[in-house]
Design a protein around this nucleic acid. Sequence first.
DNA 1: CACAAATGGTTGCGCGCGCAACTGAATGGG
DNA 2: CCCATTCAGTTGCGCGCGCAACCATTTGTG
Lengths: 153, 153
Amino acid sequence: MTVHPTPERLLELTAFVPFRLNRLATGVSEYLAAVYETRFGLDIPQWRVMATVGSQHECTAQYIAASTRMHKTRVSRAVAQLEARQLIERGSSTADRRERQVRLTKSGRRLYSELVPLALEREASLLACLSSEQLTGFLTGMETLERFLQLED
Amino acid sequence: MTVHPTPERLLELTAFVPFRLNRLATGVSEYLAAVYETRFGLDIPQWRVMATVGSQHECTAQYIAASTRMHKTRVSRAVAQLEARQLIERGSSTADRRERQVRLTKSGRRLYSELVPLALEREASLLACLSSEQLTGFLTGMETLERFLQLED
DNA sequence: CACAAATGGTTGCGCGCGCAACTGAATGGG
DNA sequence: CCCATTCAGTTGCGCGCGCAACCATTTGTG
């Protein structure tokens, strides 16, 4: 019989990796939001759709949902909003009339080509706080975790 | 005049660190959710409140909001729900009658002491996919980013 | 060929969130 | 000492999300 019969195990939330990861992801999102939100009036789902469609010639909502890992209803609504702003347009794909091919309009492409360099620059200025060894180490860890959780594409 | 007058810059979302970080944080949350959600019927805000209150003798909603970085209304509602389940209780603090001291009840403490080891174990089993050098590198990078974004406590 | 099952995408609904406004209590300056 | 300001915490409200149900089309199977 010891002096401490039930030494209570503690959990310090601020040292708990899942919590810290959430907090970091939120912080990074906010750090980035200035670019697409205040400057171009896009929210996160819209920004992700723009980024996905812009890197393709055209694609389906399905594809967007899969590669952004957003729920298909969230994609559907973001696409509708972007279409209303005339940043993207949809054509019936001749092959399968259930799906609709999404592509950027002229002004969508203009916005995209303005936005992307700013976003990449912002990412770079964030990662610039890491030394090159730190960056490598961090990215390597991320990749392993992604593989473990099967988050890769 | 070149052949490619405006070589469009592309952004591959799946290689974009802010996006990957969000995806990873979500994945880790889901990986962890099994512990507190399906087993103890807590959602994320409730779990964070339990973890925070449990690591203190007693504390205010204010303190919970600051250390979990949750909005005070989110804290307020989580606290109300946990009080309804009799997992925590609130006493008027004698000093300042605006604030109320929150602490775990007997059954709250029981749940806490069951939950915490499981959560820590789950964190460990996640991080076990990293080699010790990978883990060090990953955590070092996280710390630097946290400091850069002023997310530390 | 017909009908059941699956698939792409949209929509009604309930819920949780953050914002802004509020209540009640403490504080500070004239 | 009073009144304006600040602060802890709660609540009404609008909005965006995911779930489930749905529509239209395609595919698979007997």
